[in-house]
Every structure is written in structure tokens, then in C-alpha cells.
């Protein structure tokens, strides 16, 4: 598991922070060991509040880790960097900027690309995510699904080593979510960027990933992992494949166990959310 070829390696990662209101130390994740292989699409699923998003924020460098080590290509992660780009759950678009202006915001913030080049490439990126013709639209004129396309294009334009996706489709309705999953796979297959995808949707995780990791309840750590041996390219019908359903059952069981943890273990743990 700790092979040196890993893109992202987490060893014994623990993350904690102070809850100001209750003045208690909150342990979000503890002892996370995992490795993401180059070019792999890895999904993390887990019960609600298990610290999976917190872990992703640490990978992005937005929050520090309390213990263990977290490395990307062997370098310790201490702050955000151009080698990673996040697709957020909430699109986080600047409402006064057009689609084009929002897509270039990532590279603009990084200062990694000239404006002219950024605009040219952004236009290609916008086409890639299926928003051609909407370059000059404002975010509030777009549907939720379209906003998430902008969110994705902004991340892709920075051409990161690793793409981090934090439940990007969680707020969308069921049909849109399925279309977006299909589109994401299409785009991902063109670039094959290493991707770390956080979700609570088991089907989504299986459908997208090469490997699915299940987190325990809080404080989260890796409970088990599952290689998804479904051939690519995958269309949406694969979700009714018997193999797919076997994976789904297995992950579902695994999460159920976590939800059914006896009350005394709950009490000993950390304050309830």
C-alpha cells in the first residue's frame, strides 16, 4: 500500500481542530493510511460526518494535519499549490464575473498563466465541459448543474497533477447528477488526471472509480477498500450490471456496520456533531 510510486500518500494522518463554541478538541480523522496511484480515480465514501471532506481539505492544503504525513509526489503538503485543484461542493463562483471570468479565476489566482493565454484556453475548457455559448453568462443565470461545470472547468484549466472533488454533484437533482457523472468520466478519460473524489453516494463512487475506500465513522480512518473492476469507458447502464450491484452491496454493508456502532462506543468517542 505504501509503494513509492504513489501520487498521494497518507500515513497515519490525524486532523483535529478546536470547536470554539463548546471549547473542545474535535478529532475529525485519525490514523488515515491510504495511497492514490498515478492516474487513478479514487473515491472515498463514508457515513455522514466521518471527516472525509476534512481529509480532502487537508490534501488541498487548506487545513493542517495534526499527526502523520501527507505527501504528493513525495513532497509534504503544507499549503495549497498549483499541483492540486479542488472542485467544490458549492460552486463558489464570483457572481459579478461571467462564466469566462470565473473559469480563468483559478489560474489568475495562481498567477501561472498570462491573461491572453488563459482566455484562449478557458474557451476550450468551457467547450470541453459543454458550456459553449455561455461564456458571457453570469453565474446567477445558470442552473446548478451548469454552475458545477464552471467549477470543474476552473479546476481543469489550472492543469493540476491531481484533481480533488468534494461531493461536487451532491446538491444536484438525480437526473442532472447522472448526466454530470457521465460527463465527468468523459472529460477525465481524456486527461486521466489522478482524481480523489469524496461522496456519500455509493453508486456514484463505484460508477466513477478505479477504487473505492470506505471510511469509518468519526474519527474517520480507512475501513476497507474495493477495487472496481468494471471496464472503461462506462456508460450509465453499468449501474445495473450484476458486478456493480455486488460492489454496491458490499460497500453498503460496510457503511451500515459503521452506522450501527453500539451507543457506548459513541459515548467514549468524540462529541456528537
Amino acid at each position: 500500500m505504501y509503494d513509492r510510486s504513489a501520487k498521494l500518500a497518507a500515513k497515519g494522518v490525524g486532523i483535529e481542530y478546536w470547536l470554539h463554541r463548546s471549547k473542545t478538541l474535535f478529532t475529525a480523522v485519525k490514523g488515515v493510511d491510504l495511497a492514490v496511484r498515478p492516474g487513478e480515480f479514487l473515491a472515498i465514501v463514508g457515513p455522514s460526518g466521518c471527516g472525509k471532506t476534512t481529509f480532502l481539505n487537508a490534501v488541498d492544503g487548506l487545513i493542517p494535519i495534526a499527526e502523520g504525513s501527507l505527501t504528493l509526489d513525495g513532497r509534504e503538503i503544507t499549503k495549497p499549490g498549483p499541483d492540486r485543484a479542488m472542485v467544490f461542493q458549492q460552486p463558489g463562483l464570483l457572481p459579478w464575473r461571467t462564466v469566462l471570468g470565473n473559469v480563468i479565476f483559478g489560474v489568475e489566482a495562481q498567477g501561472s498563466m498570462g491573461k491572453r493565454e488563459a482566455i484562449d484556453r478557458a474557451k476550450q475548457q468551457i467547450e470541453l465541459v459543454g458550456l459553449k455559448g455561455f461564456e458571457d453568462a453570469y453565474p446567477l443565470e445558470l442552473s446548478g448543474g451548469m454552475q458545477q461545470r464552471v467549477n470543474l472547468a476552473r479546476a481543469l484549466l489550472t492543469n493540476p497533477e491531481m484533481l480533488l472533488l468534494d461531493e461536487p454533484f451532491a446538491a444536484l437533482d438525480a437526473q442532472t447528477r447522472e448526466m454530470m457523472q457521465l460527463e465527468l468520466l468523459k472529460i477525465w478519460s481524456q486527461t486521466r488526471k489522478t482524481a480523489l473524489f469524496i461522496t456519500h453516494d455509493i453508486k456514484e463512487a463505484i460508477y466513477l472509480s478505479d477504487r473505492v475506500i470506505v471510511f469509518t465513522r468519526r474519527p474517520g480512518r480507512v475501513k476497507n477498500e474495493l477495487e472496481i473492476k468494471l471496464s472503461r469507458p462506462r456508460d450509465l447502464r453499468v449501474k445495473r450490471d450484476p458486478q456493480f450491484l455486488t460492489y454496491e452491496d458490499e460497500i453498503w454493508e460496510s457503511i451500515q456496520e459503521e452506522l450501527a456502532v453500539p451507543a457506548e462506543r459513541l459515548m467514549k468517542g468524540v462529541p456528537a456533531a
Partner: peptide, 13 residues
């Protein structure tokens, strides 16, 4: 908006 600040920080602004 906190979400906008988070996005900007994430891109290393």
C-alpha cells in the same frame, strides 16, 4: 462570502 474566500485560498491566491 466564506465560500469565495475558500476557493481563492485553494487556488493559492
Amino acid at each position: 462570502e466564506a465560500a469565495l474566500l475558500r476557493v481563492a485560498r485553494s487556488f493559492g491566491a
